[in-house]
Amino acid sequence: MSLLQGLDYAAVFIFGLTGALAASRAQLDIVGFVFLACLTAVGGGTLRDVILNREAVFWVADPGMILSACVAAILVFFTAHFLESRLRTLEWLDALALGVAVPAGVGVALGMGQDWPIVLIMGVATGTFGGLMRDVVCNEVPLILKKGELYATAAFAGALAAVITTFVTDSSLLTLLTCGVTTFALRAGSLLFGWCLPVYKSRPPRA
């Protein structure tokens, strides 16, 4: 198994867990769990592969990805009731998935010889689109749009760190590790310490 394939598998499984947790919060049946898990798990990678016009979308080339998401859904279906806070667990798993999926997107774009702006966009899209679809389907405010949340910002910073690292070393492992650590650290800081961006505040109208 290649490094990129391993990252895709990890992202699919962890994002699948978050999709299933969202299904548990919405009190869906087992079919709903599987649907949301798969949607969340492959959404970002599918967008990436379609835009980059890869020979085959990653989960079509390797159907084991879908099986991995289904396993995550079934696992959560039978264990979610043991969790003290499913929302908090979802947020932390989502942070972990972000730290894996962004390097996966960056790695694919770099491997295809894309210029750095495309590398940045693919990193952010791979990391955020699945969660965005999950939250929209569940009628929740998407994490990416919550006030000041370091979510898309964390993904962008991680992808940018990867691009900068490519100017320093030819090691793909170090590049993707830097990307993942940067992404997860910023997202974790947002969850633990409330790190956030300033939000727009409209000024009162003049008299």
Results as ranks from 00 to 15, higher is better:
13 F>V: 02
13 F>S: 01
14 I>T: 04
14 I>G: 06
15 F>Q: 00
15 F>K: 04
17 L>S: 00
17 L>E: 00
20 A>W: 15
21 L>I: 02
22 A>N: 02
22 A>F: 03
23 A>L: 06
24 S>R: 01
26 A>E: 12
26 A>R: 11
26 A>L: 06
26 A>Y: 02
27 Q>I: 00
28 L>F: 11
29 D>P: 06
29 D>R: 10
31 V>S: 11
32 G>W: 05
32 G>A: 05
33 F>Y: 15
34 V>I: 15
34 V>C: 13
35 F>H: 07
37 A>C: 12
37 A>S: 15
37 A>R: 12
37 A>P: 07
39 L>D: 03
39 L>R: 03
39 L>Q: 03
41 A>C: 13
45 G>M: 09
45 G>I: 05
46 T>W: 02
47 L>N: 03
47 L>I: 14
49 D>M: 06
50 V>F: 13
50 V>L: 14
50 V>W: 08
51 I>Q: 05
51 I>W: 04
52 L>F: 13
52 L>G: 07
56 A>R: 10
58 F>M: 08
59 W>F: 10
60 V>N: 10
60 V>Q: 12
60 V>A: 11
61 A>T: 08
64 G>W: 10
65 M>N: 03
66 I>R: 09
67 L>V: 15
67 L>C: 05
68 S>H: 07
68 S>T: 12
68 S>E: 04
69 A>K: 08
70 C>Q: 06
70 C>A: 14
71 V>R: 11
72 A>R: 11
73 A>Y: 03
75 L>D: 07
76 V>L: 06
78 F>I: 08
79 T>V: 13
80 A>E: 12
82 F>W: 11
82 F>E: 11
82 F>V: 06
84 E>I: 12
84 E>V: 12
85 S>C: 04
87 L>T: 09
89 T>L: 13
90 L>N: 08
90 L>Q: 15
93 L>C: 09
94 D>E: 08
97 A>I: 00
97 A>F: 01
98 L>N: 11
99 G>M: 07
101 A>S: 13
103 P>M: 06
103 P>I: 04
103 P>E: 12
103 P>W: 03
104 A>F: 15
105 G>P: 09
106 V>D: 12
109 A>F: 05
109 A>G: 09
